[in-house]
C-alpha cells in the first residue's frame, strides 16, 4: 500500500477530497431542488438519483476515512498558527465525519419512510433498508436530521473553503496548493521552503 507523503496530501487523498467535495456540493443542490420541481415523475426520478449519489458519496467517504487512518495526514502547513492548526483539524474531522453522517441520516430517512420505497442505486444495486422501524415520527425525525446535518455541513464547508481561499489569495501560502497540486507547487516552493517541489 502506498502511503501518503508527509509534507503534502498524496494523489489519492487529493482525488478523494475533490471528488467528494464536488459530489457533496452537487448533492446538496439536488437535495434542495428535487422536491420543488413540478412534475411528480421527475421528482421521483431526481430523488432516486439523489439516493444513488448519496450512496456513492457514502462509499467514497468511508474509503477516505480508511485512507486517512491508514495513510496518515501530512504535517500541518507551517504557514498555520497553532490556533489555525487546531481549528483546521477540528473542522476537517467534522467534515470527514459529516460526509459519512449526512448520507447515513439520508439512508435512515429512506429506511423509516412509511412509503418504503426501495433504493436501487444507479438502477443497478438494490440497497437494503437499515433495520429501523418505519413510522411517520421516525421518518419526520430523520428528514429533519438529514436536512439539519446537510445544512450544518455546507456551512462548515463554506468556512473551510473560505479559509483555504484566504490562505491562497490573501496570505499567499501553500495551504491550498497542498490539496490542489495543480496550483504550480514549484512557484510556491520557490517562495516557501517548506514544500518540496515534487509531484505529490
Amino acid at each position: 500500500m502506498r502511503h501518503d507523503r508527509k509534507e503534502t496530501f498524496g494523489t489519492i487523498a487529493v482525488l478523494l477530497h475533490w471528488t467528494i467535495a464536488l459530489l457533496f456540493l452537487g448533492q446538496f443542490a439536488l437535495g434542495l431542488s428535487m422536491t420543488k420541481v413540478k412534475g411528480m415523475a421527475l421528482q421521483f426520478e431526481l430523488i432516486q438519483w439523489h439516493k444513488s449519489f448519496g450512496f456513492l458519496i457514502l462509499g467514497l467517504a468511508v474509503l477516505r476515512l480508511g485512507w486517512h487512518l491508514g495513510a496518515g495526514r501530512p504535517r500541518p502547513s507551517p504557514a498555520l498558527s497553532p490556533v489555525e492548526r487546531a481549528s483546521a483539524a477540528i473542522v476537517q474531522a467534522l467534515l470527514l465525519a459529516a460526509t459519512v453522517a449526512v448520507p447515513l441520516a439520508g439512508w435512515a430517512l429512506a429506511s423509516t419512510s412509511t412509503l418504503g420505497i426501495p433504493t436501487l442505486a444507479f438502477k443497478l444495486v438494490l440497497i437494503p433498508h437499515l433495520p429501523l422501524v418505519p413510522s411517520e415520527q421516525a421518518e419526520a425525525f430523520w428528514r429533519q436530521m438529514h436536512g439539519f446535518l446537510a445544512w450544518a455541513t455546507i456551512l462548515l464547508a463554506a468556512a473551510h473553503a473560505g479559509a483555504a481561499l484566504r490562505h491562497h489569495l490573501l496570505l499567499r501560502d501553500d495551504v491550498l496548493a497542498r490539496m490542489l497540486p495543480i496550483l504550480s507547487p514549484r512557484r510556491l516552493a520557490g517562495r516557501q521552503t517548506t514544500t518540496e517541489s515534487d509531484d505529490a
Partner: peptide, 15 residues
C-alpha cells in the same frame, strides 16, 4: 392506497 402521499402520487401527472 396505503397513505395519502401515495394516492396523490398515483393521481398526479406521474401516473
Amino acid at each position: 392506497a396505503n397513505e395519502a402521499r401515495m394516492e396523490n402520487f398515483l393521481r398526479s401527472d406521474a401516473v
